[in-house]
Design a protein around this nucleic acid. Structure first.
Lengths: 299, 299
DNA sequence: TGTTCTTATAAATTTATTTTATCACAGCTG
DNA sequence: CAGCTGTGATAAAATAAATTTATAAGAACA
């Protein structure tokens, strides 16, 4: 099996025309015919039906099976090229979601600056979900990500840096302001200012709703945490926010949840299992872990 | 990049000797030298240091990076070969853990037999964890698996068939036998008969311990559910068991847990994302889903 | 019916890989 | 220290494989 044959075949499946595939790769048409024949001979099967009224080709079930693997192999080959190229690079492509970037990452910034590494970071700032995809696609080297579940899997290496709690935040003027803690189900009649879907907050909020059998009113959604805090401060509604983002300057009251089941805001340092960190990357990773890891999660 | 060069290089990394690799693949030694050179030229880097006191070779950091990808690519190629070969086969390699096999799968067996498919199943019966690995390694086509968390990921396609509850089972002679339900933390002084680690029960039990801040005494572990039931029946201890495995014939009392957080026993039909089911496999999958899926989980 | 668009085939060509033969180097050993 | 052994590199020759060129064959379509 040749990688090149797989790319020819994969393109054939999408273009459905031998000549077009040949043009695409700047080769002659019989090259594509031969490539498909090689694969068909190797696996002793028919991958493509060509006679079918001659309008277009048809991929057989065996063909579809091979395509599934072909895509995985081609993707891995692309990642290989990206990673091998990135190896000689000094720049570290770094993903940072807004909350973690504003309230958590700064604790490590001075140590990175000391080591002369802050300037090497090419930072992408967007939601954790998007960063996760970029990481998996080889577009980022390292990211700090927020999540409710562990991100460790066969693709990604995730080091847990901190587990933060989600809090209920209310205005000092709110009727809840005198309390220190509250059960989530007691909030069923409250109006919430919620984060947009690129935050993990709506997911955690949904899980709490499910477990408490309530469904409070969300009156406004925003991706701007400062705006959210201001709206809560003005008592327009109450908020649901990880303690990560809370500072004394907010002039907000935060209530702990008393529920035994609680989603947590996990902050992890994530990189691909398949990417061996470069020297620079290794330094960044070490400093971030040292500076940001909460003691209780040292292993 | 050629797959063959990657396999040569990968073997070189483990054997650490060009000549030995050549012998392994029944080619001459310069072939290996050339293969490594091709890769080094393609990625414009040094992958292997050969002069180092001439005792053994040394893989450079770039070499290690390439190795990581090489292994992933080689694994995928192996899976491809397995899947393409399995495509023409009538036999379906089917994984079935003991509890699901005894208490849950029989509901589908008659319909499989009707369709003449029961005899096509090559059944492997072992713990869910082992079956999961076998599935990922391409040694199984389909499995029914028990788990506490969803098994869906980038490798596996999992269809949820049922969510069962974990119950506390006690002897009719037990002092708990008059109750219908109980909070887990009230069991802190009880003695438990527990399943061995190849079951999901110890994991779920551990999660409940953690949430309830208790740590009950486990006096015996067994992989034999009938023995476990007998021991509980004789009031040697109490048990923690998915309702899947409970039948009226057991003469046991089962108590529901009242906790708001409860792990669940998920039963899923699982196969690899990358394996396109053969005609026979498709039939088996359809019948299993139709016969076993609990109504509330139709999508 | 001839034109066009398609893929297949076969021979020639080009490119790539492997082998053969040999060299160079280092570590051991008598 | 000379000679043996085991290691990998190199260059030319041989082999193998992929691609191109040129052409055929089939179907759709005007």
């Amino acid at each position: 099996m040749k990688i090149r044959d797989l790319t020819y075949f994969s393109k054939l499946a999408s273009l459905k025309n031998f000549t077009a595939v040949a043009d695409y790769f700047s080769v002659r048409q019989p090259t594509i015919t031969m490539a498909v024949k090689r694969l068909e001979r190797e696996f002793d099967t028919t991958l493509v039906l060509r006679d079918q009224s001659h309008q277009s080709i048809l991929i057989t079930p065996s063909g579809h099976q091979l395509l599934k693997h072909a895509h995985r192999i081609i993707d891995e080959v692309e990642l290989t090229n990206l990673d091998m190229a990135a190896l000689n690079q000094e720049q570290v492509r770094f993903g940072l979601p807004p909350i973690i970037g504003h309230y958590f990452f700064p604790k490590a910034a001075s140590r990175l600056a000391q080591a002369g590494l802050l300037s090497q970071l090419a930072v992408t700032e967007t939601g954790s979900g998007e960063l996760l995809t970029a990481l998996e696609d080889g577009k980022l080297d390292i990211a700090l990500l927020g999540s409710t579940h562990s991100l460790n899997n066969s693709l990604l290496n995730a080091t847990l840096l901190a587990k933060h709690h989600f809090k209920i935040i209310v205005s000092p003027k709110s009727h809840l302001a005198s309390q220190q803690k509250i059960a989530f189900q007691d909030l069923h009649d409250e109006k919430f200012i919620m984060q947009t879907e690129d935050f993990v907050h709506p997911t955690a909020f949904g899980a709490l709703n499910k477990f408490s059998f309530i469904n409070p009113n969300i009156i406004y959604k925003t991706g701007d945490i400062t705006l959210l805090k201001n709206l809560v401060h003005e008592n327009v509604g109450i908020g649901f926010l990880t303690e990560t983002a809370l500072t004394p300057q907010d002039e907000l009251v935060s209530l702990a949840l008393t529920d035994s089941f609680q989603p947590e805001f996990l902050i992890s340092l994530v990189f691909r299992q398949s990417q061996l960190p470069s020297a620079t990357q290794k330094k960044v990773i070490d400093i971030l872990i040292q500076a940001l890891r909460t003691d209780s999660y040292h292993q």
